[in-house]
């Protein structure tokens, strides 16, 4: 891969990392909001929504981190 391409991929991975963190943080807040719910259905909705957000955000961060590691080693 050329340096330009590596830099572009690195940029994309850094962006995904930031987005992933943001989405995961929201997932944690929604999960935390479970303690304010009253009925079982509300409880489950917050839990499922929170877990989905955490897994999307976490997944994006994990993928981005591994890409960054790979690209940095290639650069050196």
């Amino acid at each position: 891969m050329e340096t330009n391409e590596i830099n572009a991929a690195l940029k994309a991975a850094q962006i995904n990392n930031a987005l992933g963190f943001f989405i995961m943080a929201f997932g944690v807040i929604v999960l935390f909001a479970m303690i304010f719910t009253e009925t079982f259905v509300e409880h489950m909705t917050d839990m499922v929504a929170g877990l989905i957000l955490i897994s999307i955000g976490g997944g994006m961060m994990w993928k981005a981190k591994s890409t960054i590691k790979k690209l940095k080693s290639k650069k050196e």
Binding site: A33, T39, E42, H43, D46, A49
Partner: peptide
């Protein structure tokens, strides 16, 4: 919607 998702 339950609390949390309303805000969201």
């Amino acid at each position: 919607l339950p609390p949390g998702l309303v805000g969201l």
